[in-house]
Design a protein around this nucleic acid. Structure first.
Lengths: 220, 220, 220, 220
DNA sequence: AATGAATGAGGGTTCATTCAT
DNA sequence: AATGAATGAACCCTCATTCAT
């Protein structure tokens, strides 16, 4: 009886230790990947060797976690997105007015891009908007239209205007320093495009922006 | 004397024949490159072998013209851009009013993207707007503002709104069929964003679009 | 505690096994390189493919050890030189008289060239004399002159006479069988050139040559 | 009759013109080859493209004259050797005494090497001594021995001593500037090696060296 | 779970050679 | 005889992937 119990405990312990180790190794790889991806332009894509050297693990270890660079890229992207969404959720969730939500969301997004070049580079090159963000943006656009605040010719055009302008803004941020009020300017022009009235725009932009807590402390 | 003359003539002839052959080969390579680039996504970049097989030339011949895939890509892009600019120049050059110029240019651009997926794919993935297009767009934006027709918070924001929205439109076109009036919608929302008055927008969009002559017959 | 100890032991074991394997592979490559270099004249230089086929390793494996044929050549040369120097060291180190040292060294060198064509081919084509050999030769020449035994117009001329004549001797050995006493003849004429007296030459040549133990058993 | 004669004359004329042209083209290629070979180390061997660019002829033209770089190298070597031999022939041919001939020949050779680095580089890397030079050297060595002036243990050893020491001297000249009297020193030590008496050596070295006329004007 | 030596397919590049004009 | 575009064999090198320990 005692033997069994001991063995069981020891198995549990081994399992727990193994899982912890696994998590730690994975975190090291992702953290290294963040650095590596930053240091490589699109014309000079990183190779697996770069990751294992940066993470200090063996070749084989890499394959225990990811099958390819693409998979690691995806994991890294997801990690970054989750990280950001998590941190913005709290601020926006409490707001009801779609205009307020839109304004706050876009400004935080641009600010994030300005303050975190690595994040910006990832987000700017993503193929499509992540699921959650797309959902929220769509909802806000439709609600704004329904409430008579917004006025645009078609949903697709409105969506493309918002996503395209913000993405172009991120490209600009990647290639040059932008002036301090750039976030306000780009948001203002987008709101104009969406057909929001002049005074409503002024009111929306006058609202102070909540400060975001710092993120990405877990792994660096 | 006759000998000399004959020799000279023969040399000229050789030169002319050689140049013609050279031009033909280059055209074949570019034409093949257009096809090859279309058939490859960004995750599956074409290799030199693809081009020489498509063009039906030898490995070494490729290197007689281009040093790398990148160089060929650049040449192809330039060829396409030149081709389009050439064909649109005539229509837009005759217009004075910046609003008219903007509207016509953007609609032709979107239409081109709709009718020529290959062209769209190239233009959508280009790093930056080509020199000529950038110049014209900037001029029109500034003139429109100066004439009191447009009203935007900053030049950069306006530029990003136009380029970003159109680019996003091209992405959409690449991934799905768009409804017939999409060009009007996206242009309308952009004009709203630039602060053009409601009636001026209506007038601009009512103007009929000049038909463009077909292009790219030289090499395909 | 036991787990830790076991893991550590296993890590050590892995390391040891890996290093042993590495050493073995490297030895195989060098051994193969010796054969390959012999079979190729300077007009028909070997390519990497020759080495990997001879060594029975994969293309990539070669690059894990050497970046180019030149690097491998250097490594092979060094290996051979070290091997020879090691084996001759014992015999010459015990001698004090510079004339004896010179005579013994040169005769052993020529004998080695006669008995080991591969070695001869490497040594004959080396750009310059290896560091150690150069050092010893220079010392002996200067000491002989200082002691009044040798008499030559300049150190450079003496050095060139020795190195040049021996090298030419190696070329001859490579291209034809030489008669048995060739080592004595070439050494005699060199000593004459260095200005050593007739009787001293006779005495030096009369001394029996120590037998050298066989070498290069490690890798072939 | 007249017609025939005229035609014949014209054929002759064409033939003559053709031959002259051929000779001119060949001279251009060799002249260019000299330059090209100089500019390339042994680790970076020249390719046919280098020659045709330097000579300003077409690819095909090269093949009308030489089948490979090796053949061109041989032709160039021969041209240089002929050039030198031609220029030294006059001086040495008039001498009867083998010691004088040897001394003069070797000194002129070393001087040539010092004053013409390109020539030196070719001669130093030649596989074997050219036919004519070998013949003369052999004759002089044998005659000197027969006349009781020289005293060496074997012909082969003597030959190797001379050729090897001079070759080593050329290597030294290629890699560093040598002092002014180097030609005298190397010749002195060689004569010592060949067993020539002290005073005879002094006499031989005291003789003034004939000045050589400049060469290689035809093609550069 | 971690290691890292070995692998070899896959792609890049050069350059001697041919041949129609 | 001269031209030079086209050719493709022969090399070079990288790097994702496997696997015994």
């Amino acid at each position: 009886m005692r033997t069994v119990r001991r063995r069981k405990a020891s198995v549990d312990h081994r399992t727990r230790v193994g899982q912890a180790r696994r998590a730690r190794t994975q975190a090291r790889i992702i953290a290294a990947a963040l650095r590596v991806f930053t240091e490589h332009g699109p014309q000079d894509p990183p190779v697996i060797d770069d990751f294992i050297r940066a993470a200090g693990v063996a070749r084989g270890t890499f394959y225990n976690y990811y099958k390819s660079v693409g998979e690691l890229l995806e994991a890294t992207r997801k990690w970054l997105e989750d990280d950001f969404i998590e941190s913005i959720e709290g601020e926006v969730a409490s707001l009801d007015d779609p205009i307020e939500r839109l304004t706050t969301g876009m400004r935080l997004w641009i600010r994030k891009a300005e303050s975190d070049p690595l994040w910006c580079s990832f987000a700017a090159h993503a193929g499509e908007l992540g699921g959650l963000a797309k959902e929220r943006l769509s909802g806000d656009l439709r609600n704004g239209q329904r409430a008579g605040q917004l006025n645009y010719p078609s949903f697709d055009a409105a969506y493309d205007l918002v996503v395209g302008s913000v993405r172009e803004g991120m490209r600009r941020i990647l290639s040059q320093r932008v002036r301090r009020k750039y976030d306000l300017e780009i948001v203002q022009i987008i709101l104009q495009g969406l057909g929001l009235g002049r005074e409503a725009i002024a009111r929306a932009l006058a609202r102070p922006l909540p400060v975001m807590r710092r993120t990405r402390q877990r792994i660096s």
